Simulated scan of single mutants.
Amino acid sequence: MVVIRGGQGLHIYKEYILLCVLPVLQASLFLGYGMSEIERRFLTCADPSLQCDYGVIMVYGVKFRTIEKLSSNESPKACSDTEAFNGVSNRCDGNGKCEVATYGSVCDLCNSAHLTYIFLDVTYGCLESKKVTTCDGAGVVHLECGDGVVFLQKALYGRTDSQTCSQGRPQSQLTNTKCSQEGTLALWSQRCDGKQMCEVNMRVNHISDPCYGTYKYLDVTYICLPAQTSITCEGSTSSLDCGKGVMKVLHANYGRRDGSTCSAGRHELSNQNCLQPKTLNVVKQWCEGKSQCTVGLDPVFGDPCYGTYKYLEVSYTCLEGTLTV
Rank of each mutant, 00 (worst) to 15 (best):
W188H: 01
K195Q: 13
T237H: 07
S236W: 05
S239E: 11
K244R: 14
H251T: 14
L240W: 02
V204S: 08
H206S: 11
V249D: 02
M197K: 15
Q228A: 14
V246C: 04
L250V: 13
G194P: 07
K244S: 13
A264M: 12
C233A: 09
L250N: 04
N201D: 10
D241N: 15
T229G: 01
R191D: 04
Y215A: 10
R203C: 03
S260E: 13
A186M: 07
R191K: 13
C262A: 11
C192L: 07
L250P: 00
C262P: 04
K248R: 15
T237A: 04
S208M: 14
Y212C: 08
N253F: 06
G243N: 11
G213K: 15
S230H: 03
A252P: 05
W188C: 00
S208Y: 07
M202S: 08
Q228P: 01
C211I: 12
E234I: 10
K248P: 02
V200D: 02
P210T: 12
G259L: 08
T184W: 01
G259I: 10
R256N: 08
Y215Q: 05
C198D: 04
S239F: 00
I223S: 12
C233W: 01
Q190A: 14
Y254E: 00
L185K: 10
G259K: 13
S208D: 14
R257L: 15
I223V: 15
V249E: 00
D258S: 10
Y222F: 12
G245C: 04
M247S: 08
C262N: 05
L250I: 15
R203E: 07
Y254T: 00
N201R: 06
S236C: 09
Y212K: 15
C242L: 07
C242W: 00
A186F: 05
L225G: 05
C262M: 08
S263M: 04
T229I: 13
D258Q: 10
C262I: 06
V246P: 00
L225N: 06
K216L: 07
V200Y: 00
I207K: 15
G245P: 02
D241P: 06
G245W: 02
D219I: 12
M197P: 03
R256H: 06
R257K: 14
A186Y: 02
T237Q: 14
A252M: 07
Q228H: 14
R191Y: 02
Q196N: 15
D209H: 07
C198R: 02
G183K: 10
S189Y: 01
G243R: 13
K216W: 02
C242T: 02
D193A: 13
Y215E: 07
T214R: 09
T229H: 05
I207R: 15
C224W: 05
V246A: 10
E199I: 08
A227G: 10
T221V: 15
D258A: 11
P226R: 12
D219M: 11
Y222M: 10
C192V: 03
Y212M: 14
W188R: 04
M202N: 06
W188G: 01
Q190C: 03
V204M: 03
